[in-house]
């Protein structure tokens, strides 16, 4: 197999510029996903049955359709309704919606992990509603949620190459460009794969640190 290190080095700066776009899109998409997730979680808890039921199906829909198709819909179909978005905007909105359902699932699991007895203890101490939420419920729910968010971020990072198909100029897009211009695919795709591997491994280390910071004093791992 022909793999030229010289060529790989030559295209590395271009690919890294693409990687910056990858990270930007992931970050903005991640923040959107958390907003969407928080919204969905709020709509599912303590709302009339109709609202929570509809929300459940919306989540199910967001979860069971491919990111690629969502991106197509936002980028190609919405202009028919007069809403034209730049690739970056369509891409991050698709990411945010797609992963918002997962974010909501993570948050719900976190909230459910706080036992009912904690609520009872807060009532017995006559804590105001706000203090119960900010001092007892959320700090405890955050423990499983934050590492979950870390994993979500990593999987979003790995989903961004899909957005090359709506011509977002991230890493994959750059690699394709290099490939089709120079008729050399090997180096570009392998370097992209390696960059992703590095990102994922760094991310995994980050999540592990987060998990360690989040364990309760005195609990055994």
């Amino acid at each position: 197999m022909e793999f030229s290190f010289a060529f790989a080095l030559e295209i590395l700066p271009k690919l890294l510029r693409g990687a910056v776009v990858t990270i930007e899109a992931t970050l903005v998409g991640f923040l959107l996903a958390i907003l969407v997730g928080a919204g969905l979680t709020a709509l599912r808890r303590g709302t009339p049955r109709l609202v929570s039921g509809v929300t459940r199906w919306v989540m199910e829909f967001l979860r069971s359709t491919p990111l690629l198709v969502k991106a197509y819909f936002l980028y190609f179909a919405l202009p028919d309704f007069g809403l034209t978005m730049a690739p970056f905007v369509a891409g991050v909105v698709a990411l945010g919606l797609h992963h918002g359902a997962f974010a909501s699932e993570i948050m719900r699991a976190g909230l459910d992990s706080v036992p009912r007895s904690q609520r009872e203890a807060a009532i017995a101490l006559n804590l105001p509603e706000g203090a119960w939420r900010t001092r007892i419920l959320i700090p405890q729910a955050a423990r499983p949620v934050l590492p979950g968010f870390g994993n979500l971020f990593i999987s979003m990072l790995k989903d961004t190459p899909v957005l090359y198909s709506i011509s977002l100029a991230e890493m994959m897009f750059v690699a394709n460009e290099i490939g089709s211009l120079q008729f050399r695919y090997n180096e570009a795709y392998i370097v992209v794969a390696l960059i992703y591997l590095v990102f994922s491994l760094l991310g995994a280390v980050g999540v592990r640190l987060l998990e360690r910071r989040m364990t309760l004093p005195g609990s055994r791992p």
Binding site: S117, E120, I123, L125, N126, A131, R143
Partner: peptide, 30 residues
């Protein structure tokens, strides 16, 4: 509720607070 205090079978302490914080949190927050 201010007239009443309760101690539970399973303690129900707040696991993310130290003993001191657990005891101080009622007076501070309520």
């Amino acid at each position: 509720r201010g007239h009443v205090g309760m101690v539970f079978q399973q303690f129900n302490l707040f696991p993310h607070m130290s003993a001191l914080e657990n005891v101080a949190c009622g007076p501070r927050l309520s």
